[in-house]
Design a binder for these strands. Structure first.
Lengths: 178, 178
DNA sequence: TTGCCAAGGTTGTAGGTACAACGAAAACCG
DNA sequence: CGGTTTTCGTTGTACCTACAACCTTGGCAA
């Protein structure tokens, strides 16, 4: 049948590609399916229950975890792997809804600081339980404790390749209790 | 500092939510970052090198792996976790570009079959090496063989929760060699 | 049959993301 | 210093996805 998308091609068609072995393919295919299915699921839960996208949630979450609830645009963008244009649009919409405000930075007159309003604080406080429950149910609960740790290690290694400078990683990274 | 998005709230704020422990949080945060970063990366590589989205690629890949290169719309949709409207738009664009054709199904007059043209076959054949290289470099290579297997098991368990009926899983699932 | 409802697809539109172009302030440098 | 180059951010547009409305066919039962 000679499938051509991930597996071996016929010898005479080979270029120089190292195609995926069965086990690699099987692992990747499942991850790819998760990539396809999980984000829309998180989005739809959050949109339905709180009117937020998952990306909105991450932005508000990071703000809520920061001393003074204030973060610079460019930092917010890097931490969420977003381009500045995208973040700019998102922040504009969040500002129109009253969840954040933009302030000209004192130190750098090019820069803009984003501040989480009380309304925004209440918003994410309201949205958090449902979202956490979703993550628990669909990601953590199906795994054993050991697998949760394995996942952490695996994800860390992949992330180190995706994001060598570690700008993307600090999110939700405050391990201050337990 | 009392972060509110994933971790424990103050006792007096607690509702009934089981917040994430440090280790759970750390694993989930990393996975969430991958969810945010990997799909855009795959998209941009494919768009740049072949003018396809990752979703386009999955559609063409499934077609290319199917006997007769023909698959019904509704099956294509389920296998890719897409809604029918979304798939319909995507197929329309692929058809305009000459990569697929739509045929009225003989068995069911409501149904539409999608057929991968020779041009479409060449397209994915052309796109595959670069995409596979990307997957290798950013997902498989950073992991040990053992971790690749662990990832497969973990992903399978999560997927079983996301997709209990297994409609999403068969993709790329032909393990016919190795 | 007739009537009803579920399943398969299409179309239109609103909302979000990607990309390119732009402007302004800071940093670098000869 | 004066000029060039990054960095920071906004705006506009094209593309893609989500959602709702709609139409047709098939399945099922009275």
């Amino acid at each position: 049948m000679n499938s051509c998308s991930y597996k071996l091609m016929r010898d005479n068609e080979r270029v120089n590609t190292r195609w995926l072995s069965s086990r690699e393919l099987s692992s990747w295919a499942r991850l790819a399916s998760i990539l396809e299915a999980l984000p829309p699921l998180l989005d739809s839960q959050l949109r339905h229950d709180a009117g937020l996208t998952h990306f909105d949630y991450r932005v508000l979450a990071l703000l809520s975890e920061t001393e003074g609830r204030t973060v610079r645009m460019s930092f917010l963008a890097k931490a969420n792997n977003a381009t500045l244009p995208r973040l700019s649009h998102v922040i504009q919409r969040l500002e129109e809804r009253g969840y954040v405000e933009r302030l000209a930075s004192a130190e750098d007159r090019r820069a803009t600081d984003v501040w989480l309003t009380d309304e925004g604080w209440e918003k994410i406080r309201f949205a958090a339980p449902g979202h956490v429950e979703m993550v628990r149910e669909h990601v953590l609960d199906p795994l054993t404790e050991e697998q949760v740790d394995q996942l952490g290690t695996i994800a860390e290694q992949i992330l180190r390749r995706l994001d060598p400078d570690g700008e993307l990683r600090p999110i939700y990274g405050k391990h201050d209790d337990d």
